[in-house]
Amino acid sequence: MVVVERKELSFLERIYFPAILKGLKITMSKMFAPRFTRQYPEEPLPTNEVTRGQPRLAVNPDDTIRCVSCGLCEAACPAYAITIDGHETERFIEREPERFDIDMLRCILCGFCEEACPKDAIYMSNELELADFSRAALVYDIEKLKRPVSALQDRIDYVKKINDRWQTSSST
């Protein structure tokens, strides 16, 4: 059996007013404390290379896309967000995506695509904002996904650093 021992209150405590005044003092003092709230659209969220935002396709400085449409990200994607069709090119890298769709509404930003990619072509960018007026507009096609390598450089370096920790020397 639990016996609750109630403290005998003094008169001052019983009339309750000193406690109320104390409480009022606390709330008033907090009114002038610094705010925690972030004014979101004006103050964007800070991102760094560890941020796993929406996946983006890296485009080399010579305007060629790194992706060879090998389909490993498509296979790795747990949310079935990626759809790829390839076609032949005249470049030395014979293959590139003709269609590369990521359904951003399905994407769960897990980063499996980035991990699966053998060609260092898809990276989790620091872009996090996603809003539009239709579902169709949020299925990003290849043109919406392309980003120059320079824009993704921080993430590329970070991923390389992480991979180097456990990978043995490559066979190429």
Binding site: T27, M28, K30, M31, F32, A33, P34, R35, F36, T37, Q39
Partner: peptide, 13 residues
Amino acid sequence: KVSAAMQYRYGPN
């Protein structure tokens, strides 16, 4: 506004 201020927020702005 006042409740927001007391809770370290901005309130409607």
